[in-house]
Each structure stands twice: as C-alpha cells, then as structure tokens.
Design a protein around this nucleic acid. Structure first.
Lengths: 185, 185
DNA sequence: ACCGTGAAGCAATATCTTTGCTTTAAGATA
DNA sequence: TATCTTAAAGCAAAGATATTGCTTCACGGT
C-alpha cells in the first residue's frame, strides 16, 4: 500500500530542499549523503534506503527542476512560438546550472526512467505549441520532427560541445525545421 | 616535464586493462577503485591521485573504447557512405555496452573534455566521408549539418528515449539530411 | 654513473556505506 | 476514538572506501 502523504512525504520534501540548499551553498562536488542527511534532519541510512546513493537522489532532484513550470507562451504563430520556446529552452539548458541538472538527471538513472521523463517534458511543451498551430490552421510538422530537428541538436551540443551556443543557433534550427511549410494552408 | 613512457605508462595501461577485464567479469556496478587497483597490481592511492575517482577513470576508459578503429568504409557515394556509417554508429552506440560507455564518458567529466573528444571522433569520421564526396564532385553538406541532422538525433534518442531504435531510423535521418542535394553538380 | 623529480607505495586516519534490529507514526478497521 | 498493521525512519555497529603525509622508486637528463 502506497503512502503518498504524511511522514514519507515530509522526509522527501526535506531531503530535496536540503539538496537544493546545499548545492547552492557548498557546490555539488562537496555534496555527500551524510551532509544532506544532516541538513534535512534525517539519518543517512534513510537516504541510502530510499534513494540508493547520492547520484540517484541528485537525479531525482534534477528532474524536478527540469520540469517546466508553465505552458509555453503564445505569440500568435507557430514560428514565433517555436522560436521563443527554443530560445528559452537553450538558455535554461545551456546555463551551467542547467547542464549540471541534465547530467545529474542522466547520471543516476539506471533504468533510463528519469531521462525519459525529461524528454517527455519537452515533447509535451512542443505538443502544446503544435496543437495551437493546428487550431490556427497552420501547416504543422509533427512533434517528432521538431524533436529531431530542434531539441536533439541543442541537447547534443549542450552535452558534447558546450561552447558557442547562442540564441541564434536555436533560431536557425527552428527556421530550418519549418522550411517550406509557411505557404501551405 | 611530461613522461609519457616508462612506469607511468605501464601503470595506466595496467589500470585500463583491469577496468576492462573487471567490467566484463563482475559488471560495472560491482567495480570499485580498490578492486581495480588490486587487479592492476597497484595501490588504490595511485588511482585516486591520478584519476580522482572511479567515475573519472571509467570516463577515461570509455572514451578510449568509443574511439573509432578505422576510417569509415567507402561505398562509392556520399549517400551510401553516410547511410552505412550512421547505421553502424547507431548499432554500436545504442547497444547496452555502447550506451554504458556514452554515459560513463559524459559522467566523470567535470570539464566536458571527454565529451568533446567523443564528438570530435564522430566529426572526424564524417569529415572523411564528406571529403571523399567532395573529391567525387558530389554536392556535399557541411559536417555541422550532418551532426545536427544525423548524429544529434541518434544520440538524443539513445540518451533520452532508448526504445525502438533501429537502422531504419538512421537511414531516414540520412535521407532527410541529403534531401534536394543529389541533383546539383 | 649519478642526480633531480614526478609518480608510486605504504599506512594511518577520516569518511562514507551497509545492515540488523528497534521504534515510530500513517492509515485502516472496528 | 482506540487499536492494529506495516512501511518507513532511527540507531548503532561493522565494513568498505577515500584521503593524505611521508617514504621509496625509477625515468630522463647531465
């Protein structure tokens, strides 16, 4: 029987907060399970038993921070919506903090579950944008295409070649992904 | 002064071998620095001082294993070369072992150095393919385009959505990346 | 053949991880 | 509301890993 509320929930919240606070205060390299436990007012064995190790805990926290907080802004057209979303996505993900979260999320994730969740967040936001475009009767690519053409290149560069990423790159990708579509009806 | 040869080199080789052997024998989750050290005939402190921790050592080993061993096969045309290369790339990288290496390479890599190296390997292979195409007077995209259109989507899916990846996907990406190019001179 | 030096060995210490057992409190039942 | 059940947390001891000062070794230069 699952017990989503009560003590377990309090412990989880308190541990997550402790991670976020300590990440800011001492930096991630200095994070340890006992340190987090002390700040959270919990014994280390609680963390080991619930999360396994520090990496899985960090992965958990990272995924939470990567979850979008609001649907993408509506700028009145598919291309404006996508441009804006891609720019923000790149900004957030390419920042030092964003990169650390992505890595953490991928890292302590034996079954690929958390990584899948991150990808689903992006897919969801894109789905909203494309849904709006469809309602406006715009010619709309499918979400997979946008992921291949826009999200994947951004993530690849963030992970493998973190230098020289700027909004212009996101804009170019969006432009290319939408090429030869503006004229249909 | 750098000392590439001699004892240091022997230690490095022996430690790398130990990692590879033990990865196969006991599995990566059971790997520990003391275990590797014992197999390599080295004291643990040597490993800690040279590599910092297990993750960085694994990252090191992983990058070595991701280095291509030969230039891409020549099939007589850009599209055949790229199709073949992409298919092999996907096969190797999407296999359980390949995915583990990619993750390890990204993981113990504080400065993004090893990740950059992996990306450079792919870029180099692609450069060879495109160079051949240019010599044949084919209309040739630049390497960045191939990375954005072919490599990035493959890597994104391997890392974030490991299900349902097959050669057909790689072929489709190559086809789309080369679209509207075959007819030029 | 002999230094100088960077890297490896050794060993003591500090820290983290694991685990068996006990205690707590959430949620169900009456 | 009192009681019961049980998943999860606490505690503490044992085990393993990580760190570090000092010593020893051997490569590369003179």
């Amino acid at each position: 029987m699952v017990r989503p509320g009560g003590r377990s929930a309090r412990v989880q919240a308190s541990v997550h907060s402790a991670v976020r606070e300590l990440e800011a205060e001492v930096g991630r390299p200095a994070l340890t399970v006992p340190l987090v436990a002390a700040r959270a007012g919990v014994t280390p064995s609680t963390i080991y038993r619930r999360w396994g190790d520090l990496q899985e805990l960090l992965s958990d926290v990272a995924v939470e921070r990567l979850r979008p907080e609001a649907p993408p802004e509506d700028h009145g057209s598919l291309s404006a919506d996508l441009r804006n979303w891609a720019e923000q996505f790149l900004d957030e993900m390419a920042s030092p903090g964003g990169r650390a979260y992505i890595r953490d999320a991928l890292l302590g994730d034996p079954d690929g579950d958390n990584a899948g969740r991150c990808s689903a967040y992006a897919a969801e936001q894109i789905g909203i944008i494309l849904g709006r475009a469809t309602e406006r009767d715009e010619d709309t690519p499918d979400a997979e295409t946008v992921i291949d053409r826009v999200v994947a290149p951004i993530m690849y560069r963030i992970l493998f070649r973190p230098d020289g990423l700027a909004a212009a790159y996101a804009h170019r990708l969006v432009g290319e992904a939408l090429e030869r579509r503006g004229t249909a009806g």
